[in-house]
Design a protein around this nucleic acid. Sequence first.
DNA 1: AACCAAACAGAGGCCACACC
DNA 2: GGTGTGGCCTCTGTTTGGTT
Length: 386
Amino acid sequence: MCASAGYRAVRSFLRAYEGSEQTFNSYRTHVERLLLWALIVRHKSIFTLKRQDAEAYLQFCRNPPTNWIGSVTRGRFIANKDAETAVVYPVVPNPKWKPFSQKLSALNAQADAVQVYAASKGTMNQIFSVCSSFYEFLAEDNLVSLNPFRLVKNKRDFTGNLTAEAQNRALTPLQWDYVLETAESMASAEPLRHERTLFILATLFAMYLRISDLVGRSNWEPCMGDFRQDPEGNWWYHVIGKGNKPGKIAVRDEYVDRYLRRYRTFLGLPNLPAEKERTPLLTTLEGRAGLSGRQVRTLLQSVFDNALAKMKAEGREAYEMNSLRSASAHWLRHTSATFDAPFRKAKDLQLDLRHSNLSTTQDTYYHSHDQERMHSIKRLGMRERD
DNA sequence: AACCAAACAGAGGCCACACC
DNA sequence: GGTGTGGCCTCTGTTTGGTT
């Protein structure tokens, strides 16, 4: 077995995921890294790795040497500038690329503290599961006899984490008020730029959407006609969701009456979507159909930033504002589901969130919410009982 | 019920490109 | 030259569905 056999095995493993781009990308990252480590550090073929090697690899990933870590994420490949070879090799490896990278984000770059790379629990879990499924694949093809990762002892030493404190990923009611109000005033002040922003914010929130339920995916471009009215006059938003699962979400009246109408009026469309209307849900400012998830996140970030500035300007307390600093698009889904949970049956919320198991909904929104938990005890005295 | 691997998706920095 | 946009990449979070 030589290096090129390993390379071929990696390629055929990855081919199994070519249909799902993001999965493919992250799997490529991990198997390539494993391949590099095996050859460069361990001087072994990937076909001969044993349990101890797997453990050494996990240890390596948790704390890689600094020359394996880039300070920013670089493209794996760049365009080939050499005209002669470019015909055959349109892209070439990027010399600045590193197998690991560490973000020095403005937010948590504390003064001049040296940041030590330490992979999080989620990252270690992913490394473990990708490597493990890679070896399961090799075993199927009889290229190895066992999966060294499955044999790792004390998995928790590697994947379980020290500091994994589950963070609340929802806005507080107060923060949400500021965010919505900020988006509304941004829309009124600069309609051309921000009516769309308000629409995005309201839509994600009103229907607990994931960002991809709004921007679409390879086989689905959301359009106004995806809002459909049933025979009783109720509106439903039809999506192709995570894992390509079709679904529909009940739409609340206030969303239709205020935000959907408002945006359609701004666009110069009739108040309500017509049956099979093909108008794209989102367009670029130039009017081209479709907007990337990347851009949607950027727009929402500007709303969060402005809302935070507004809270500061109005003299809000630090504890009221702090969590807003780490808010992101996905928080909107959590926020509205959290707000609505007390008023909706778990089964209904489950369907609208498109969870396949009720327990996911129950666990996330009906139990461990700090606010509710705190609320239920806060006013309970210690002595008086009646 | 608690745990875990696997699949899949979101977050956000950087950069190139298009169009004013 | 400035702005809007989206591709790229790795890190990290979410959800599923099976096992114990």
